[in-house]
C-alpha cells in the first residue's frame, strides 16, 4: 500500500496557527438504522459506541461521528480501513445498511494553536464559542462542504472532499497568516 499518497501529502503552513494536511486517514461511511442492535454490537467490536446526535466519540486511535440521522463516519487508520469496512459489512449483513470505504474520497486537516478558532471563524458560519469538544459540526468553509470538530486541546480538525484539498489549504493558509489575528 506504499503507493498511496494523500491529496496534499502532509503539507503544512505556520502563521498565527499551524495548518496541516493530516495525511492518509481511514474513513468508513456507514448508513444504517442508528438504533439497531447489530450496529451497536458492530461498533463495540471496534471499541466504539453509537454517538448521539452530532456527537463524535473517540476511543484510542478510532473515532465515530454522527453525520446525519442515518449516517455515521468511522475514523481509523488508513491501512485498516478496508478491514473495518469488511468487518462492519459482515456484522450488518442482515440489516439494511450500506458500508463504504471513503478514505480516499476525503482530505483531513488540523488547525492547531491557541488562536486556531480564529482561522476557522473566517471561513465557517459556525459559532465557535459554543462548539463543544465532542461535537461534530457539518457546515461549509467558504465555498465547500466541511466537517469540523475539536480533536484535541487547541486543535481543530476539518474534513473536506479530496478534490478540493488544495482549495481548503489555500483557505486555511490565507486565514492563518500572521497579522490576521482577530482578538
Amino acid at each position: 500500500m506504499s503507493k498511496a499518497v494523500s491529496a496534499l501529502n502532509g503539507q503544512s503552513h505556520t502563521g498565527f496557527a499551524t495548518v496541516t494536511e493530516a495525511g492518509l486517514k481511514g474513513m468508513v461511511s456507514l448508513r444504517a438504522d442508528l438504533s439497531s442492535k447489530a450496529l451497536a454490537k458492530a461498533l463495540k467490536a471496534l471499541g466504539l459506541t453509537v454517538p448521539a446526535q452530532r456527537a463524535i466519540v473517540t476511543e484510542g486511535a478510532r473515532s465515530v461521528a454522527w453525520m446525519s440521522p442515518d449516517e455515521l463516519l468511522v475514523l481509523c487508520g488508513y491501512e485498516e480501513a478496508a478491514q473495518v469496512t469488511a468487518d462492519l459489512e459482515k456484522a450488518l449483513a442482515k440489516d439494511h445498511a450500506l458500508v463504504t470505504n471513503v478514505s480516499d474520497a476525503r482530505a483531513m486537516f488540523t488547525v492547531s494553536g491557541a488562536k486556531g478558532d480564529e482561522v476557522l471563524m473566517k471561513l465557517c458560519p459556525i459559532d465557535f464559542e459554543t462548539l463543544e469538544a465532542g461535537e461534530m459540526r457539518r457546515s461549509r468553509a467558504a465555498q465547500v462542504a466541511a466537517a469540523v470538530w475539536r480533536s484535541g486541546p487547541q486543535e481543530l480538525s476539518v474534513i473536506c472532499f479530496r478534490s478540493v484539498a488544495g482549495y481548503m489549504m489555500g483557505l486555511l493558509e490565507v486565514s492563518s497568516r500572521k497579522g490576521g489575528e482577530i482578538y
Partner: peptide
Amino acid sequence: PCCGVTVEETE
C-alpha cells in the same frame, strides 16, 4: 429538524 442545528441560509 434532522440534525437540530439552527443554520444560516448559506448552508
